[in-house]
Write a protein that binds this DNA or RNA. Structure first.
Length: 751
DNA sequence: TCCGCATGCTTTTTT
DNA sequence: AGCATGCGGA
């Protein structure tokens, strides 16, 4: 029996025991959020709720694992039966069971970001579009944003506003790329990361009585962690599961609007605001007591976040007497910054006896890790960089995995393209292009095209040889254990002899990586991790692939645990360390130059800084350099505005302000391109805070505020009923007028 | 078809 | 400064 009253403070207790009906827990940093989540589940189990009726969703595998571990410690093995995992992994698991209902094979494979990009490039090439305009990232971001707003290719093409945006960006045919991309994924039996959510939504949408009812009935209690990071689509899925006539609406969302740092990825704070409106009688619990950081850190964090206007009112506080002030280190260059940080780490270790594992170096962009890495290595200090290339993204690992994928799902086009001529077997680009073109013309998959007699005998022979090898392996994979088939694929593919004949240093390290991949598979097979549910128990190659497709580098556990952590602030969310260095505190770097002319993006940067500050338990150091190398060139920087917001009384010493330096104005890159992306004077993401007025309220002559275009004047109104269109002249956009469909627009009448 | 070298481009943040 | 891409030669 757990003594809930003893182990929780009164607010935490309330959050844990209010298990019926909708609950919103606003949890400040370090307020015992994970504790609440796990104790809440434990409480439910004690009350006799079956573990398989509980669904707990997180964003990262790490958070899910931590929740499961702590739950197990609390309630024993019964906790394993709770459905706890990331949005992506849980939905993937269900999709695998129900895939046929949306026309997918149960053997569907998953495209990672690189595969998606590669397919997009392929399509752009096939459509003869100019790739200077149709850049991969732009297209990918647009497609991804569309999906997270549940906009299908057809709906995209029909959406005048999106089409207008694409014309503005000089990519009027983007909708066709989206259509082709979606079709190709579907026909290849693959899903990208977004599809795992998007298709799950479709699954529920299209099968109201079969599937939707089943899962509504199954998941009687929902818990959602980091709710502030959910996007429209994720929230829509949650509502599907919880909102229906006579639903008990047992959903508990946990989040903190002050820690919302993924708006760029489509996460929207509106979800938190909407939650209270959508669900009736929401019980709101605010966890404000911080058990993590010293009082100067807490005060600094509060000072910083108070510079943001829009937020749910709360103030984090601590009763800790920790009296260590925040240190600020100024350096002349990025190299000196790294040196001083390393010096400071030495000092901390000596003076406060910290172990490496209790120290973290954080930065805004991953590129900044390099100098720190060099200095740490030079000083023989163990470190680990998160957010670089994950193990599974290494070329040699991906190559072998691509073979696995092809064996599981022979229609996986990207896997095929990757391995068909690796190792070299005389099937070059020309052949491959022809094959793909033929498949498209005849509306068959590339795999099916391979045994059509369209090539000279020699090429045909090579193709057939390859095809029958994969076919054979596929047959075998049905009978044999995963580790055995994995080894067989490694040998039969020719990769094994390729590596064995490579005696260079890189070759050796590649071989080591392959070996540890194969070892990992063996471990996977032997490790009898019970599936969360009896429905999925048999271990297939497909299941293995699915389990690793969703892993990030944070999920690979190193042998030696005592290392200094280097990571982006985004990656640090949810973590805490005794000593934290927040580096690169410079204007245009943090806050990023990309956020400079948008108040909304600036507040996100500030929330990011808030997250950075609150990672620290005792020692917090902010560092900045007045110059650093960028693309081989020296660039000068000014100290970040955020340094001033911390409050001087929280600092060990006042900030040294450099004088008489001419700062270079940075230019903006024109990449980006999700709906939050930006380019030219016309913003493409919401930049203005708007209180939408009802559609009927608009009339000619009014001054209005549009979330993206800013202030404008309504020249006239055209059409009527649902199709009323306002012709508006916006100050910002510079053109004569813009037509806005009032039914969709979220505009506010100002005067 | 394959390999080597020159060129130009990069930088948010990530499940 | 480093990496991917593209082009030309074998």
């Amino acid at each position: 029996m757990i003594d809930f009253e003893k182990e929780l403070n009164s607010v935490q207790l309330e959050a844990c025991t209010s298990i019926d009906g909708p609950v919103m827990v606003i949890a400040g940093p370090g307020s015992g959020k994970t504790r609440v989540l796990t104790y809440r589940i434990a409480y439910m189990l004690e009350r006799g709720i079956a573990p398989w009726n509980i669904l707990a969703l997180t964003f990262t595998n790490k958070a899910a694992r931590e929740m499961k571990d702590r739950l197990e410690r609390l309630v024993g093995s019964g906790g394993q039966k709770v459905w706890a995992g990331t949005f992506h992994s849980i939905f993937a698991k269900i999709l695998r069971i129900e895939s046929e209902k949306i026309g997918y094979p149960s053997t569907f494979t998953i495209y990672d970001t690189d595969d998606s990009k590669s397919l997009i490039n392929q399509i752009v090439k096939e459509m003869n579009l100019n790739k200077e305009q149709y850049t991969t990232n732009l297209i990918r971001n647009r497609i991804s944003s569309a999906k997270s707003l549940l906009i299908s290719p057809a709906a995209y093409a029909a959406d005048e506003e999106l089409m207008e945006e694409d014309r503005q960006r000089d990519v009027p045919h983007l909708f066709k790329v989206y259509g082709q991309y979606a079709r190709r994924c579907f026909e290849s039996g693959v899903m990208d990361f977004d599809d795992l959510l998007y298709n799950f939504f479709l699954l529920l949408q299209r099968n109201p009585e079969g599937v939707l009812e089943k899962y509504r009935d199954k998941f009687k209690y929902l818990l959602v962690d980091e709710f502030q990071d959910t996007n429209y689509m994720q929230y829509a899925i949650l509502k599907k599961l919880v909102r229906y006539p006579d639903s008990p609406e047992n959903i508990c969302i946990v989040g903190d609007d002050a820690q919302s740092i993924y708006a760029f990825r489509g996460a929207t704070i509106d979800n938190i605001l909407d939650f209270e409106k959508t669900f009736r009688d929401v019980r709101v619990v605010k966890l404000e007591q911080n058990y993590r950081s010293g009082k100067f850190i807490i005060d600094a964090a509060n000072n910083v976040i108070n510079n943001n206007t829009q937020q749910i009112k709360k103030k984090i506080w601590t009763d800790k007497s920790d009296n260590k002030k925040i240190d600020v280190i100024r350096a002349l260059t990025d190299v000196e910054e790294a040196r001083k940080v390393v010096d400071s780490i030495f000092e901390l270790k000596n003076r406060a006896h910290l172990s490496n594992a209790e120290i973290a170096i954080l930065y805004r962009t991953n590129a900044q890790s390099r100098t720190f890495e060099e200095h740490l290595r030079r000083n023989n200090m163990p470190y680990r960089i998160y957010g670089g290339m994950s193990f599974y993204q290494r070329k040699e690992v991906k190559d072998l995995l691509a073979y696995f994928r092809l064996v599981v799902n022979s229609n996986d086009e990207e896997a095929l393209r990757r391995v068909i001529n690796h190792p070299k077997r005389g099937i070059g680009d020309t052949t491959l292009d022809k094959l793909i073109a033929y498949a498209r013309e005849n509306k068959i998959t590339v795999w099916e095209a391979m045994d059509r007699p369209i090539f000279p005998t020699r090429t045909q022979g090579l193709l057939l040889e390859f095809k029958s090898m994969i076919d054979q392996l596929h047959q075998e994979s049905q009978r044999v254990m995963v580790d055995e088939i994995a080894n067989k694929i490694y040998v039969k593919s020719g990769l094994s002899s390729l590596f064995r004949n490579d005696s260079t240093a890189e070759g050796k390290s590649r071989l080591e990586n392959i070996q540890s991949l194969l070892d990992g598979i063996k471990e996977y097979v032997e490790n009898d991790v019970l599936g969360e549910d009896e429905e999925v128990s048999e271990k297939s190659l497909q299941e293995y692939l699915q389990s690793i497709a969703l892993l990030t580098d944070q999920d690979v556990n190193p042998e030696d645990k005592d290392f200094i952590s280097l990571m982006s602030i985004h990656a640090a969310k949810g973590l805490e360390f005794d000593a934290v260095f927040v580096t690169g505190m410079e204007e245009n770097l943090f806050p990023s130059f990309l956020s400079m002319d948008s108040p909304l993006e600036m507040s996100e940067e500030r929330r990011l800084f808030f997250v950075a500050l609150t990672r620290a338990r005792h020692f917090l150091t902010l560092t900045y350099a007045t110059s650093r190398f960028k693309f081989g060139k020296m660039v000068y920087y000014q100290p970040s505005r955020f340094l001033d917001e911390v409050g001087e009384h929280n600092l060990k010493a006042p900030i040294h302000k450099p004088q008489n330096i001419v700062y270079e104005r940075q230019s903006k890159a024109s990449v980006g391109g999700n709906f939050n992306g930006k380019r030219s004077a016309i913003p493409t993401s919401d930049k203005f805070q708007v209180n939408p007025s009802p559609t009927a309220a608009f009339a000619a002559g009014q001054e209005v505020l549009h979330p993206r275009f800013g202030k404008g004047k309504i020249l006239r109104i055209e059409g009527n009923g649902d199709n009323r269109i306002a012709a508006i002249r916006f100050t910002l956009t510079g053109d004569d007028e813009r037509k806005i469909m009032l039914r969709f627009a979220k505009m506010e009448v100002l005067a």
